[in-house]
């Protein structure tokens, strides 16, 4: 039973931050400076997630070429920079990761 109280509490604490801003969208006049800042949310959060997922391995920073995720990420980065295509970037990144893993 205790675990269902935990789930109910977690559901509430997860839903509230997801919902509150959306709830007041249109009602609340967003200041121009805040709207400008909000445009940076995707770049800021996604970059932070990617950099940690790529470089943090086994609890520490691994920036060596033994880090296959890093090699795949660098190839994906170059692809995205040149062709700006999401699908192509994913394909090149995954293929690089598979190839590097296969080569050892």
């Amino acid at each position: 039973m205790a675990s269902w109280w935990l789930i109910a509490g977690m559901a509430l604490l997860t839903f509230i931050p997801r919902y509150l801003p959306l709830r007041f969208a249109g009602r609340l006049q967003i200041p121009r400076e805040l709207e400008r800042a909000l445009n940076y949310v995707p770049i800021a959060v996604l970059t932070a997630i990617v950099v940690q997922a790529t470089l943090i391995q086994h609890g520490g920073i691994d920036a060596s070429l033994h880090n296959h995720r890093l090699i795949a990420a660098l190839c994906a980065f170059a692809t995205a920079l040149i062709w700006r295509r999401l699908f192509l970037t994913v394909v090149v990144g995954l293929a690089t990761f598979a190839l590097v893993g296969w080569l050892g």
Partner: peptide, 8 residues
């Protein structure tokens, strides 16, 4: 990782 890179 690579999808987020393709988006950012």
């Amino acid at each position: 990782i690579v999808a987020f890179i393709g988006i950012v």
